[in-house]
C-alpha cells in the first residue's frame, strides 16, 4: 500500500501532488508525516520535495487555487486525496470544473471549501478579545478547520493599529500582530506565562453582558434558533455564552 508523505505545509503538498501527476502515479493515499500513524501494511514513500516550491508553476486559475487552499485548511481526513483528484481534473477542465459537481472529487472539494469559508466567516464574528498586559488584545479559538491565517488577514485590516494575539488552542498555534504584520508561530516556540487580564476588563465584559441580555425580546424567545446560529462547540470562547457552556446546557 503506497502512501506518499509531505511535511504538512501547503507548498510541499502541492509540490508532491504536482510530481505525482507528472509521473502519472495514482497514490493510494497522501498524508502529513507529522500527524500520521502508519500500520504495518503501509508502505510509506517520501519523494524529495522543495520547501520553496513555486505554486504558480501549477497552471490553474486563482479560483481553483483558492478552492484547493481552503480544502487544505479543512480537517477532513481524506483532504489530500480529494485535492489530488480535484487538481487532476482541474488541470484538464480548468474553470469548467466548478460546474462538474457530478464528479465525486469535485463535489467533495467544493463542499469542504465551503465548510471552511463558512467557519471562517462565523469566527470573524465569534472571536472575542480580552485586553491583557500593555493593552494587547488576546483571543482563543478552537475551530474545526485551520482558519488562523484567514482570520489574521481579516483582523490585520480591521484592528490595524492594535497589538493582538490569537491562539488556536486545538493546534497550539499563535498568530501575533504588531500593528504592521502578523506572524503565525507554533506554541512550542513561545512562552506566554505572564498573561494578565486587567481589572477593568471585567467592567467591559459586564457591560457587554448587560447589553446582550437586554437586547433579546422576551416575547420572541427562541433558544433553539439561537443555538442553530451559534453552535455549542463555539461557546467556550464566546464570553456571553460562557455561563451556558459551564452549565452544560442551553436553558
Amino acid at each position: 500500500m503506497n502512501i506518499y508523505l509531505y511535511d504538512g505545509t501547503f507548498k510541499s503538498l502541492l509540490d508532491l501532488i504536482n510530481k505525482l501527476i507528472e509521473l502519472k502515479i495514482k497514490p493510494l493515499d497522501i498524508k502529513d508525516k507529522e500527524n500520521f500513524k502508519p500500520n504495518i501494511l503501509d508502505n510509506m514513500i517520501e519523494l524529495e520535495l522543495d520547501m520553496e516550491f513555486d505554486i504558480s508553476k501549477i497552471k490553474v486559475s486563482k479560483n481553483i487555487m483558492k478552492t484547493i487552499y481552503y480544502v487544505y485548511l479543512s480537517s477532513d481526513e481524506h483532504k489530500e486525496l480529494i485535492i489530488y483528484y480535484f487538481l487532476l481534473n482541474a488541470l484538464k477542465y480548468q474553470d469548467k470544473i466548478f460546474t462538474m459537481r457530478n464528479l465525486k472529487c469535485v463535489n467533495s472539494a467544493l463542499k469542504l471549501a465551503k465548510r471552511v469559508s463558512n467557519e471562517c466567516h462565523k469566527l470573524k464574528g465569534f472571536v472575542r478579545f480580552k485586553e491583557i498586559n500593555n493593552h494587547v488584545l488576546y483571543a482563543e479559538i478552537a475551530p474545526d478547520s485551520d482558519v488562523l491565517e484567514l482570520l489574521s488577514y481579516h483582523f490585520a485590516k480591521r484592528l490595524a493599529n492594535e497589538y493582538w494575539l490569537i491562539k488556536d488552542v486545538k493546534r497550539n498555534m499563535y498568530s501575533i500582530y504588531n500593528t504592521q504584520k502578523y506572524y503565525i508561530v507554533s506554541g512550542k516556540n513561545i512562552n506566554l506565562k505572564d498573561i494578565e487580564i486587567k481589572e477593568e476588563e471585567k467592567e467591559v465584559e459586564n457591560l457587554w453582558m448587560t447589553f446582550f441580555k437586554t437586547i433579546g425580546i422576551e416575547a420572541r424567545k427562541n433558544k433553539r434558533c439561537q443555538m442553530n446560529f451559534m453552535p455549542k462547540k463555539y461557546w467556550k470562547y464566546i464570553i456571553e455564552m460562557e455561563d451556558a457552556y459551564e452549565k452544560g446546557n442551553n436553558r
Binding site: H121, G125, F126, F229
Partner: peptide, 13 residues
C-alpha cells in the same frame, strides 16, 4: 458579519 445571537435567535451585529 453577525457577532452573536440573542436569546430570541436574532442576530447581534
Amino acid at each position: 458579519i453577525c457577532h452573536s445571537f440573542a436569546s430570541d435567535g436574532r442576530c447581534i451585529s
